[in-house]
Structures are given as structure tokens and as C-alpha cells.
Amino acid sequence: MLQVKGLKIQQGDFALGASFDVPLGAHVAVIGPSGGGKSTLLAALAGFLPLKEGKLSFQSQSLVEKTPGERPISMVFQDNNLFPHLTVGQNVGLGLRPDLKLTEAQKTDVEGALKRVGLSGYSARKPSALSGGQIARVALARVLLQNKPLLLLDEPFAALGPALKVEMLELLKELIVDSDITLLMVSHDPDDAKRIASHVILVAEGTAHPLAEVGKIFSNPPEALKTYLG
């Protein structure tokens, strides 16, 4: 279980408070208006922003003192998920060894991961030769190899067209469905949430609301969500 207790983050004038628990294996959509603090929340969970106060733990182990790399978290950003000067295979391989000194077995694993995201044989290409959807797939392949229990996605498919986005969400779902990965995905599209999530966290006006089940929250939205959905 991911536990967030009395979390406070201060960024200049902007402050974010959060308290919620996420059960293991939950698929959570983090939604809310832009500027509300969704990305800030994820950055804080991943360890990119210092906490002003509060507790943060996973499986009863505090994460606060851990560096981003030490946390049981893998992450996909909005963009710049791949190093453009490294090949696809190398970019994925980074998920296994950040120094890229891969064994033969690990290289096979890289190929396997690429196959799972539908990119067999793309290993030697450079990211500049890939489409937006393919780049997202490579990032997901790396996440698979990282094999961390927590996966944070910060609007990873925002730049893709609607059809492609649906395709990617389906792929994502397929990839994690058999695992007990806990997923937190930022999105500004409620449909995304309905499509992939079991739960929703609404972040608005500097507050992250507690976890709600996806069926319940959309059928009976609280005030803040109503405002957001319009």
C-alpha cells in the first residue's frame, strides 16, 4: 500500500496538500484542472520535489529519505522519455542497468520487452526514426524491464492523437493487467480514467482528494469534480 499522510509541498506561491492511501495493484487516474497540482503530486511522489511536511511510505517503508532512483517507482514523463543519442535497445536497457553493461541474458530480455510492446527488431534504431506512438511504446518497454511495483505516468500520451491514445491505453492495460503493479496516471481527460482506472484521485486548487472508486465518483461527482467536468 502507498500511504500519503499530511503531505505538503511548497513551490513558490503554489502549495499542494495530499492525504490518501492507494491499495496495492490499484490503477489510479489522477485528474483535475491544469495548474491544480497533478504533475506536482507525481513529481513529489517520485522524489523530484522536496516535501515540506508529511509522510510518504510504500509497504510500510518510508520513501522520504530515498533518492528517485532508490524508490520502488518507475516513471514515464510527458516527453523527453528517450535519450535521442541512444538506440531504442539502449534506452530500454537502461531499465535494467543504468550503466548499460548488459549481459547476454539481459539483452534477450530487452528484445523480449520490445516484442511485448510490438517493436520487435527496432532495437538498433535511434528515437529520431520513430513515431510518437512508437516512442511511447519504447518508454513502456523500459518500464516493464524496470519492474518496479509503482508506475507513475505523467500525461504520457497527451501529445498523441485520440485513436493512438486509446491504442496506447489498451496496450498499457494489457501490459499491467497480470501484474500487481500499482499505477498512478495523470490525465486531464476523464475518459482516460474510465478506460483504464479502478480509482480516481481528484487534484484541484492545491488539494489532492482521497481515493475514490471510479464508478462511484463519476456517477456521483463531488463539487470540485463537477466544476472541473463542467
Partner: peptide, 21 residues
Amino acid sequence: RLSSSLGMSVWSKMRLVVLPR
């Protein structure tokens, strides 16, 4: 952020990310 979320050490980051870029 990507480098640190991948847990790269200073030297790995230098060799694999900074110098090539």
C-alpha cells in the same frame, strides 16, 4: 529527472547522457 529515476550513478550519467549530448 529521467536519469535519476533510472538510478544512474554520477559517472554513468556523465558517460551515457551528458558527454554524448
